[in-house]
């Protein structure tokens, strides 16, 4: 599956469902986020339809970032049934993220 672009408007509906949903909270000014970006795109393709994977620009979508206390970028949260199940701070490898998603499937 290709990556999902989350925003404040679609967020609540997109994270629902029993499949894990991985959200990469990023900012355009952040160096590590630029490194994380391609990893998220690859992960989205590799994981197929087992999970939903995508990104959210915190600069354009401050409400969701505030709601989940995002104070650092990149922050990656994996949601399950609409609730945060796992949070990562800083750059993460595809391997590490795949492992965590697989645990939640």
């Amino acid at each position: 599956m290709s990556e999902v672009i989350f925003n404040d408007a679609n967020f609540e509906t997109e994270i629902m469902g029993d499949k894990p949903v991985l959200v990469d909270f990023f900012a355009p000014w952040c160096g590590p986020c630029k490194m994380q970006g391609p990893i998220i795109e690859e992960l989205a393709k590799a994981i197929g339809d087992k999970a939903k994977v995508g990104k959210m620009n915190v600069d354009d979508n401050p409400l969701t970032a505030q709601k989940f206390n995002v104070m650092s970028v990149p922050t990656i949260i994996i949601f399950k049934n609409g609730n945060p199940a796992k949070t990562f701070n800083g750059l993460q490898s595809k391997e590490n993220l795949t492992e965590e998603i697989n645990k939640l499937i």
């Binding site: 000014w29 952040c30 600069d59 995002v70 104070m71 800083g90």
Partner: peptide, 9 residues
């Protein structure tokens, strides 16, 4: 650990 990244928060 990154002022440029997280300062705006």
């Amino acid at each position: 650990y990154c002022a440029i990244c997280d300062g705006p928060f």
